[in-house]
Design a protein around this nucleic acid. Structure first.
Lengths: 207, 207
DNA sequence: ACCTGAACACCGTTCAAGT
DNA sequence: ACCTGAACACCGTTCAAGT
């Protein structure tokens, strides 16, 4: 007399994300996830084959609402910008999952659909062959780095405590820049960096 | 009758890096590092207070020869490019340490000196205030992302195996692009992305 | 089928003890 | 001072057993 499955992958992922939001990445263990779901530890293995798969579930769940459709108005640069900002918005709801998103970026369905959308835009803009690869990777590389940096602590954030103790004589510009960075909102920092990448893309665009 | 200290931080770091080079990041444990050094596990705690400090030692050791001095010939863009390539060269000798380098980027002395050098170049180019923060962070963001991506597996690399199994109909451009990416050397991919960022920097440069 | 609990081979780290 | 070994509180995961 088989019992009905008490959970679905969505609820498993949501529970894992709740733990990460609350206790950080280190707080997520097979045991804590099972407890959060009201299961014994081993029952969790009914739903995922191992921790790696649980992390993939998390990565896909966080980006489940990521819109992969290219905007239909605006220049191709504006479209790419919109696509990039969409990622940051979704990630912003669960920022501590960032390392998992990066680690699973090649297998995450929502992200793959988003990449396909970006490629549509790049292709319409005339990119092809290796130039298109470079453009995509440059954009994604910046996105990964910027989101990770924002999460690990921006120049103006916690890490600056260490920097405040550095000998001023050896790092005059670093000290000065860190001071300015403290007052620069993360969102503007992200937008500014994205703008650099987008202008760079414009510069190497075909035609 | 105190015994002489049998090791210095440099040898500890070198041993840890040797393990990472050989067995990957997961292979590095307090136990494996101690064994590599011919010590009992707990003797390692004479040299580092905990695992976190061991990882910092690794991060600093890998970049110990990173030249922080701005090149004196060439345009400011060429100088920045040289600085960026220097990082990739040093990292290239121990690529699997990348996550540790990123995690410790705010405390790693060699990296802080390198950043100071980059800031000298940016300042000479006329960058100041928030524009200088954005320029620095955009560059470092790309560097982090690109090196991490290169390490976790480029588009043309292992992860593409997963992609090869995707339904073609849903991801036509992704499939096509992955095929091209497979034949693009990592070095060219990095250089191409760096070029995008540098051109973007040019576009937002003062004067 | 679905769930449980004991157990195994790991971790990082504390502590008391040896030279 | 420097090093050691046992022990503790964790991990992920295997396995045999319950309903």
């Amino acid at each position: 007399m088989p019992r009905p499955r008490s959970l679905d992958p969505d609820r498993v992922a949501a529970a894992a994300v709740a733990i990460i939001d609350r206790d950080g990445l280190a707080g997520l263990t097979m045991r804590s996830a099972a407890t959060e779901l009201g299961l014994s530890t081993m029952a969790l293995y009914r739903y995922v084959t191992d921790r790696d798969e649980l992390e993939l579930l998390v990565a896909e769940w966080v980006l489940r609402d990521l819109d992969p459709t290219p905007p239909d108005a605006g220049s191709w640069i504006e479209k790419i910008k919109t696509m990039a900002i969409r990622v940051r918005v979704e990630v912003g709801a669960h920022p501590r999952t960032v390392p998992l998103l990066i680690g699973n970026r090649q297998r995450s369905r929502p992200l793959l659909h988003w990449i396909e959308g970006v490629l549509v835009i790049l292709t319409e803009a005339g990119f092809a062959g290796t130039a298109r690869v470079v453009a995509l990777r440059g954009l994604v590389g910046y996105l990964n780095g910027a989101l990770l940096q924002e999460q690990l602590g921006p120049l103006g954030g916690a890490g600056t405590l260490t920097m405040a103790t550095l000998p001023v004589a050896d790092f005059p510009l670093l000290r000065e820049t860190a001071g300015v960075a403290r007052d620069l909102p993360a969102e503007e920092e992200f937008a500014g960096g994205l703008d650099i990448v987008l202008r760079g893309l414009t510069a190497i665009a075909p035609e």
